[in-house]
Write a protein that binds this DNA or RNA. Sequence first.
RNA 1: GGGUCGGUGCCCGAGUGGUUAAUGGGGGCGGACUGUAAAUCCGCUGGCUUACGCCUACGCUAGUUCAAAUCUAGCCCGGCCCA
Length: 411
Amino acid sequence: MTNSFSSTTSQDLPWLYRGISEIFPSKPDSDNTTENLALLIAKINRPLRVKLGIDPTGTDIHLGHSITFRKLRAFQDAGHTAILIIGDFTARIGDPTGKSDVRRQLSPEEVAQNAKTYLEQVRSILDFDTPGRLEVRYNSEWLSNLNLEKILGLLSTMTVGQMLAKEGFAERYEKENPIYLHEFLYPLMQGYDSVAIEADVELGGTDQKFNLAVGRDLQRHFGQTPQFAVLMPILVGTDGVQKMSKSLGNYVGLSEDPLTMYSKLEKIPDSLIKDYFELLTDLPLEQLPENPRDRQKLLALEIVTQYHGKEAAIGAQQASLNLVQGKTNINTDAVPEFSLDGIEFPVTLSFILKASGLCSSTSEARRQIQGGAVRVDGERISEINQSFDSPESLNGKVLQVGKKNFLRMVR
RNA sequence: GGGUCGGUGCCCGAGUGGUUAAUGGGGGCGGACUGUAAAUCCGCUGGCUUACGCCUACGCUAGUUCAAAUCUAGCCCGGCCCA
C-alpha cells in the first residue's frame, strides 16, 4: 500500500494507541501486515483474535489489571474478538515474572473459585453480550493434555541462556535466589496458549514482553503467523512509588464499595494523575482541570462512575466530603455498613473495631484509640476501655479509624 | 553425592547463655500540618472479650541448664564451589 496510508493510521486509531507502552513488531512504514498492526487492522476482512490471559491466582482484580482489560474492550468495540484465557492450568505453576520468590502452587479448587470471581469483576469492563465479541477459554483445555514428548518439543525451542535473560530470572540468579525448573515452563505454556487459540494479537503489561515474545516464537514454530504484542504500562499504585498490587496494599479493587474507591482515588499523587486519566478513563487529556485538587476529584468521580454508576459516585463524593469535615449527618448509602447483630453487649470499643475489621486485632484497636485515630460520629474517643451497653447507643453511627476507614454501625 | 556458608519479627539486619517481645533501618498505621497530596515533625508497629495479668515468638524436633534466639544432637530448607 502507499506510505500516506500507513503514516496516517496512528491518528485513525486513537482507541488503539491511547495509553499503550509498545506494540511489537512495529514498522509503521511497512506495507507488510505481519509487521504493521495498524495496517493489518485496516486490511483484514475478519475479526482479529485478541488474546488476554489472566491467571486466577488471587481473588481481587484492581485498577492495574483493568488497563489491559480496557484495551481489550477497545478491540471489542472496534469489532474484534476478545479471547479471554483463564490460566487455570498456568496458575498452578505461577508466573515467575517480577517475582523474587517462587509462587505457592494453588489447588484446583482455589483456582476454580478465583476464576469465577475474576469473571464477575471484569463483567463491567468487557462486552459480554454482543455475539462473537468474546470467547472465554481455560488453558487446562490444551495444557493438561500435553504429554512429555510435546513438552520436550516446547522445551527444545529455547536455551537456558535465553531463559536466564528474562528479567525475573536474571535478577534472582544474580541475587543467588532459587529458581526451580518448573518455572522455566511458564513462559512456554503461556506462549503455547497463543498457538492453541491462534491469536493475532496478545495484550499484556510491559512486564509480559518476554512471555508474549515466546508466544510469537512458538507460533512460528508451529507454522502460524506470529501474533502482535500490545504492551500496556504498569500502573503505579496509590503510594505513587511501586506498581499497584494487592500485596503491597496500594491498590484500588474493582469490587470495592464506592466510598472506599473514591477515598483512595481522590488522593492519587499529583505526579500520577495524568497517567491515571490516560490509562483508566476515556476523558480527553487536554481538557483536565487546572487545579490539582479538582483533577483528583474528577478522576475519582469518573472511575467510581465506571464501576458503580453516576449516582453512587456522586453519593461517595458527598459522603467523603462530610466525613472529612467531621459532619455527623451522613445520609448517603455510600458508607459501608457493619451489622451489630452478632455482638454481645455490653461491649468494648476495641472489640467492635476488631470485629468490624477496621483493626486487625484488639491490641491494634487499643493502640489506635490511644493514638487518637478513632472517632464515633466524628467525635474522637481516647478512652481505651470505652464500652457500650446496648446496640441502641450505636445504631446508625459512623465508626472511623484514621481518615479513610469508616463504616456505619447498624442493628 | 561431597565441601562450605547461611535460615531472627512485614522486609533488611543487630544480637552469641541471664534486666527485654528481642538494638537499628525500611515499610506500614496513626496524630499535627496541608490541597484528604508531597515534604516535615511526633507517636505506634506479636496476640489475648477487656490486661500493673496471661500466651506465643528468633527454620523444625529433642536435649544441656535455675535460665537459650544464643550451647549440643538430629532433621528440613537455601546459596556457592566440586562431582
